[in-house]
């Protein structure tokens, strides 16, 4: 389903990001353009088969989000290759496609289209999305009047309405109030039970233990360990 081979991602970092032509020329004349190579990922290889739930753990800046971006096709690896078969729904940051001047209803269709859902699918599932989000009549109110919890609930409902082949989850289970969190966790488990391959990033070891079948541990862009959830979590905890 997903096969990553020797994936490396290199960022070129300048101390101050040069974003204007004048600055660039000035720095060039001064001979001050220095790039520092920064490897966000180095030689990461792993394989995920259909229906598996892979947990990714590591400290901040370990390269977890970069890895997810590479898999979802947003970022091209500098070297190495990633093979992905199937549709991907990325839940990297919920609601990034929302327009706050539009109503909830309009945003369902806009965000759904961005996630790659078809028109018929969205029309058919609209009711389900609206119900799951528990927004009631707020669905016809512009998003700028929503509370942040409401926005998140809507985003979660849109992202999980589909049964994708691959679901990429980056720390999003803490959405809404306790009741909604419970509900969303149930939905996630439902999806995982339905044969969806899941890549799951979390800082909470208990969540990883509960939901994942396999795990990998990243540290400073390198893969420290790969194996079953229990092995990795035990090693990571020490």
């Amino acid at each position: 389903m997903i096969k990553a081979e020797n994936v490396s991602v290199k960022y070129l970092m300048t101390y101050d990001r040069i974003q204007s032509m004048k600055e660039y020329l000035v720095q060039l004349v001064k001979g001050k353009i220095q790039y520092e190579e920064f490897w966000a990922l180095r030689d990461v290889s792993f394989e995920v088969r259909k229906g598996e739930v892979l947990g990714i753990i590591g400290h901040n800046g370990a390269g977890k989000s970069t890895l997810l971006k590479v898999i979802s096709g947003i970022l091209k690896p500098t070297t190495g290759s990633v093979q992905v078969n199937g549709t991907i729904v990325p839940m990297l940051e919920l609601g990034s496609g929302f327009d706050f001047d539009l109503t909830g209803r309009e945003n369902v269709f806009l965000n759904g289209a961005i996630l790659g859902y078809s028109e018929q699918f969205l029309k058919g599932k609209y009711k389900e999305i609206a119900e799951f989000s528990e927004l009631g009549q707020f669905i016809d109110v512009p998003l700028r009047n929503y509370s942040s919890g409401m926005v998140m609930r809507l985003a979660f409902s849109i992202a999980t309405v589909v049964q994708p082949d691959i679901l990429i989850v980056d720390e999003i289970l803490a959405v809404g109030d306790a009741a909604f969190q419970e509900k969303s966790k149930k939905r996630m488990l439902e999806l995982m039970g339905g044969g969806t391959t899941v890549l799951f990033v979390s800082h909470s070891l208990s969540q990883i233990r509960e939901m994942c079948s396999k795990a990998i541990w990243l540290d400073h862009g390198e893969m420290v360990m790969a194996g079953t959830t229990a092995q990795i979590c035990d090693a990571y905890a020490h």
């Binding site: 327009d99 001047d101 539009l102 309009e106 269709f109 806009l110 289209a113 961005i114 790659g116 078809s118 028109e119």
Partner: peptide, 21 residues
């Protein structure tokens, strides 16, 4: 076919928000 719907949605968004207020 695949991205036509997304394109329509984005165009509709631009158009709706342009004169919204």
């Amino acid at each position: 076919q695949r991205y036509g719907y997304l394109m329509r949605q984005l165009v509709a968004r631009d158009f709706k928000t342009k004169y919204k207020r």
